[in-house]
Design a protein around this nucleic acid. Sequence first.
DNA 1: GAGTGGTCTAGACCACCCC
DNA 2: GGGTGGTCTAGACCACTCG
Lengths: 243, 243
Amino acid sequence: MTKTASPSYQPLYTQIKTLLVNRLASNEWPPGSALPSEMALAAAYDVSQGTVRKALTAMEKEHLVERRQGRGTFAARHSQQRSLFQFFHLIGQNDERQLPDSRVISCASVKATATECVALDLEQGAAVTRIKRVRELDGRPVISELLSVPTALFPGLERRPIEQVPNTLYEFFQAEYGVMVVHASERLRAVSASAIDAELLHVDIGTPLLAIDRRALNIENRPVEWRMSHCHTADHYYFNELD
Amino acid sequence: MTKTASPSYQPLYTQIKTLLVNRLASNEWPPGSALPSEMALAAAYDVSQGTVRKALTAMEKEHLVERRQGRGTFAARHSQQRSLFQFFHLIGQNDERQLPDSRVISCASVKATATECVALDLEQGAAVTRIKRVRELDGRPVISELLSVPTALFPGLERRPIEQVPNTLYEFFQAEYGVMVVHASERLRAVSASAIDAELLHVDIGTPLLAIDRRALNIENRPVEWRMSHCHTADHYYFNELD
DNA sequence: GAGTGGTCTAGACCACCCC
DNA sequence: GGGTGGTCTAGACCACTCG
């Protein structure tokens, strides 16, 4: 590891971080497995332990690795906890976080619409697998959800019986297809319930619903999922911290 | 600065951070003024520069101070930029961030409702100053907003001509009243436009609107503002990053 | 050139986990 | 007891700002 000259200067620890992220992206350390210790990495890259530490600390903040004192550093893995805290922002009136149950209505591979091609960065005419489901909290339907993923990334998903498509999808994507969602951005709007929404959510047509348009990205910042959720916010709200 | 024994152990840098936050909260360093250099603080607390640095870095992430290489460390200040990026999440279809203009409709001190007392942590019967305004983007009304602050914290605010109540309120609160908003949490729902919303936003009664319920806190984590914004999301959306 | 924060290093010790 | 990450220190050098 040599230091770069001053033009386009990048600190050593960001260079180390880039190298480690690339190795993670190449699946050298599968989710849940241990990375080499700080000392070993420092020796391998011929930098000090502190420099490796700074790279790993930055990666931990991005949920790429998990570090535990006395145990080691591990490639991040999806879990219910993570789904709940990082990716699920709908909270009940009692201020308690709770993962919804899911009932899948359909799952099929179809030709992507223009909108899906843009959202998922696909060639025109590519195939997407589309899942429609309803999610329930406290036994009541609260979210009507339509999501699309590139069929090429999830081969055979469309042939699974819908009872076998599980609730926490990102865990499933990682475990079954090696696709790791690490980041997402959402756009929220208020819309009127359509006839379909109304039936699924047991509300009147025209009821205001919170529409969440989410694009999920993998470690290489490539879109791997696009979903639209319509949420009934009579008894729940979307929570966001500004800091 | 002595190290604490093992029960209820707190790292040195968090202890230093707490001390510095307390000094900031006491207004020892007014917004925009320079803190002592890292070396000076390290000498004063009898710790190493690295420990002070870790405390200051943590404070920077919380927007309590700003650090600039070659200049120094400065107590954080509100600005349009900060309002735009930290506190304003409504984005236009063109994906451009833009601060709305404001038109204040009313500003008066009244007895707090029960809801306001809870939101602002006030005694029953306390006074709040209530501001009603409409915010415009691209010349079109998009947000109908009702906000409340404890009158005790903002004396005389209710007697200002409404033309003198500026657009970016958090800058104003800091500059004129020494009240610094550092953090906020929001709850979002979809609601129907009331007759009042409909008139202010030039939409039909019943149009779905995005309702944002925000509590803003100061450095001591005490609530200093509560606001409810009703947003017309036909041409704009609320943006959120999940990471 | 003097002073500031930012990076990098090397070494010590602490807290934690597991054998 | 041995290994891991977490904290703390001390000193060197780099990048930036300003007089």
